[in-house]
Write a protein that binds this DNA or RNA. Structure first.
Length: 574
DNA sequence: GCCGTTTTCGGCCCGACTGTTTTCAGTCG
């Protein structure tokens, strides 16, 4: 598929044209880029089958852009883009990342003051050179300096696990205000995307001024970026932006929908509305003629009017959920309370910080029917992995604890290293004594794809194994997934009745959403675990469930939604 | 650059907010 490559090129042209102050064209390029991005058919194939004419059938693509796509597909180059790149220094695209700086102002500064890097911009602002330009003032200079400061300090994208509690604590405080009727965290947090760029909050209130005053004075706030009666933006001490918007009852559902996104999901909904002669925005669904109000109080009402059932926020990525909803074939997503047991956790025996007993007690508090205690195997010596001797002592301890706690089933488990050759870190004699066996990759992350794939498949074929933990090894914003052919892993897992993990740890979330969806299409069964290293971590289970929902998983796809008896039967078959 | 048809030219998504203005341009989402 060349679609993403093509759309990237078109987006870049749009950005560069913007900087030259050219009107409308950038919008046309972006529109075409977006359409190609979301196209399910390979654009190269469209061109092959139907030439330029085929390309021009894509909405937003006319003769001009079609010819550019043709040029790119045939030569892998684009003259116009290369010309534009010559005209515009690279640093300018960095400059437009600064809060409050856009293409127009960046270009003006470059033309008048030869500013082509962030460093030069900072220098000029400090020297008071910018205030002399028409359209800029002293305040602009300060804003630029503050913007550069924020750019340096802003995190790229914050993990959901960090952003969510921040958002909820702000929402909690807002709810205490008398003038506030309702508060919702929206945006990508509501969709439970694994990382988020900002915290969007929606408030239902008749006294917006009070709400905004209160919001800007919260402890969490470092700087107020803008403040009005409908929208206020702040930068939080936790280095993330937060936007608050106030709406009234009549608009609230439409606003929820609009600000939950994703943008592409919304665009798709708006297109559907237009086809019916309606228009959809953050204030509601209206008729185009006469602007008559049709819906907007609730999201349910909105979706219903558009001819489909309510779509859960986790699904709203415009990857087919709208089409499926219109056919009434949406999956019934696993609920946030469906998990019956956590099967991956560590204790002080290896690298956890709590005792086994602490972990069990916490699991009982969470109403689990069963858990597996799974400390590391001997090869993970950095994590104080257990050799055979310690493991056998530990199994005795677990037997004792099972007698002490008769209201929860404690599976004797281990998270066992998959060695370089694909064999497991313990002998069959030891593995036989375990109830639940997890295989994990903890070494040689840089192995070639084929080697890694074979290594994992060999582990999957091991008759003792129940689960492959964090199947791609990635750490969000820290470590890329190792190279592996997931399709083959999925097939092997399916064939050998081995489950794959959805690891709930905020920096893992592995498998990730798209792979969960694929695994389910292969018929693989999944298990959602926390990989807890303390009692606190057990609570992260909801992040794993969120990932599962984003991967279109229903309860049948997740083994640890089964009650104890059924679950036990499945793992005993091994 | 695209698109439609009431218009082969003249619109194009738009509401909110800010700063530099003296009625609006630029930015953001």
């Amino acid at each position: 598929m060349k679609n993403l490559e093509v759309s990237k090129v078109l987006y870049e042209i749009a950005d560069l044209l913007d900087m030259l102050g050219i009107e409308w064209k950038p919008m046309a390029f972006r529109k075409a880029a977006r359409a190609i991005e979301t196209l399910s058919k390979d654009i190269a194939l469209i061109y092959k089958e139907n030439d330029i004419k085929g390309l021009m059938e894509i909405p937003g693509v006319g003769e001009g852009i079609a010819k550019k796509i043709e040029e790119f597909l045939r030569t892998r180059r684009l003259k116009e883009l290369e010309e534009l790149r010559k005209k515009i220094p690279k640093g300018l695209s960095q400059i437009i990342n600064i809060q409050g700086m856009g293409p127009k102002r960046a270009w003006k500064l470059y033309k008048k003051l030869k500013i082509d890097t962030v460093e030069r911009l900072e220098k000029a602002a400090k020297e008071g050179k910018i205030r002399k330009l028409e359209g800029f003032g002293e305040k602009s200079e300060q804003d630029i300096l503050r913007g550069i400061e924020l750019l340096k300090r802003r995190e790229e994208r914050m993990n959901l696990g960090r952003a969510l509690p921040i958002a909820e604590s702000i929402a909690y405080k807002l709810r205490k205000l008398k003038s506030v009727i309702k508060v919702d965290v929206v945006g990508s947090i509501r969709r439970r995307k694994e990382t988020v760029k900002d915290i969007d909050i929606l408030v239902l209130s008749k006294k917006p001024k009070e709400v905004m005053d209160y919001f800007t004075k919260l402890d969490e706030v470092e700087t107020v970026l803008s403040k009005g009666l409908k929208r206020t933006s702040v930068f939080l001490k936790t280095r993330i932006n937060s936007d608050l918007r106030v709406f009234n009852e009549k608009d609230y559902g439409a606003a929820m929908n609009y600000f939950t996104g994703s943008k592409d999901h919304n665009v798709h909904l708006r297109q559907l509305a237009l086809k019916k002669g309606w228009t959809l925005n953050e204030y509601g669904l209206y008729t185009v003629k006469g602007h008559k109000y049709l819906a907007g109080r609730s999201e349910e009402e909105l979706y219903k009017k558009l001819g489909m059932p309510y779509i859960e926020p986790e699904l709203r990525e415009n990857i087919g959920e709208i089409e499926v909803a219109m056919q009434n074939r949406l999956p019934k997503l696993i609920s946030y309370s469906a998990i019956k047991g956590d099967l991956h956790m560590h204790t002080r025996w290896s690298d956890g910080i709590n005792s086994t007993e602490d972990m069990i007690k916490e699991a009982i508090k969470m109403d689990y029917e069963y858990i597996a205690i799974t400390d590391h195997s001997k090869s993970t010596y950095v994590a104080n992995g257990l050799d055979e001797k310690r493991l056998s002592e530990r199994l005795k301890e677990l037997d004792k604890l099972q007698k002490k706690f008769d209201n929860i089933r404690i599976f004797k488990g281990s998270e066992i290293d998959i060695l370089a050759n694909g064999s497991l870190d313990y002998s069959a004699k030891i593995l036989e004594q375990l109830d639940f066996v997890i295989g994990s990759i903890h070494s040689r992350f840089k192995s070639p794809k084929e080697e890694m794939t074979k290594r994992i498949i060999k582990a999957v074929e091991n008759k003792y194994i129940n689960l492959i933990a964090h199947p791609t090894g990635r750490l969000i914003n820290q470590r890329d997934p190792y190279e592996v052919d997931l399709d083959r892993i999925f097939q092997a897992a399916k064939d050998n009745n081995v489950s794959l993990e959805i690891n709930s740890h905020p920096s893992r979330l592995d498998l990730q959403d798209v792979n969960i969806k694929k695994a389910i299409e292969f018929g693989v069964k999944l298990i959602i675990n926390t990989d807890s290293h303390s009692t606190e971590h057990l609570k992260f289970i909801h992040l794993g469930i969120a990932q599962a929902r984003r991967g279109w998983a229903s309860e049948e796809d997740i083994l640890n939604t089964l009650p104890l008896e059924k679950f036990e039967k499945i793992i005993q078959k091994k």
